[in-house]
Amino acid sequence: MAFLKARNLRKTYRLGRDNVVQALRGVDVTVEVGEMVAIVGPSGSGKSTLMHILGLLHSPDRGDGPPPSLVFDGKDVTELRDRERTRMRAERIGFVFQSFNLVSTLTAVENVALPAEYAGRRRKTALATAAEALDMVGMGDRLGHRPMELSGGQQQRVAIARALVTEPALLLADEPTGNLDSENTGELLELLRHCNAERRQTMILVTHDPRVSEACSRVLTMQDGMIREG
């Protein structure tokens, strides 16, 4: 059963008067429920742009071609307004970024609680759930630490706990091992595989790291804004 079904995704960025970059040139992609998919390809091939559109952070372009469509767990989300896309991000999607992107003034547990609060949970409940999520990623003894008091590997675990705290149906990760050493990379992949297997969470990982793509059930390769093979 398809969890994500995207058709005719195009995205053009204008980076100056004469500098137009066609990041996506009509991408069709389908991801099944519970799949763990790696998107690989050279820098500038459109991997991150595709992830941002699939994660409802950006909308595909309209015009100049067949109309785009994006179906998320059976719901057409192509035309959703910002408010609805934001709510879906809070409730249904978890994000892991390359540079961890934790809020420096908040403690680990407060960082992890953010999506739960945004999804409408009471602060106390959100913090309790966040503590459980941190425990699950092996960070149960670092709840009150600020990001700067944690190593890179620990920060990425916190970021993963944040992505999982609302038990989202979809987890998107952009270069999740980009700043990790091989030991931490192994632990992170083990964690992701565990969640994928235990929770049937659909995962899409943008990566340059062959160890990540090897851990996935399917690999999509992008080049020049198109998927070359699927």
Binding site: R83, R89, Y118
Partner: peptide
């Protein structure tokens, strides 16, 4: 700016 971006990405609404 970055912090606001993180919060928006993980589901904070404009109103929030």
């Amino acid at each position: 700016t970055r912090e606001i971006g993180i919060k928006r990405a993980v589901g904070a609404s404009r109103a929030r």
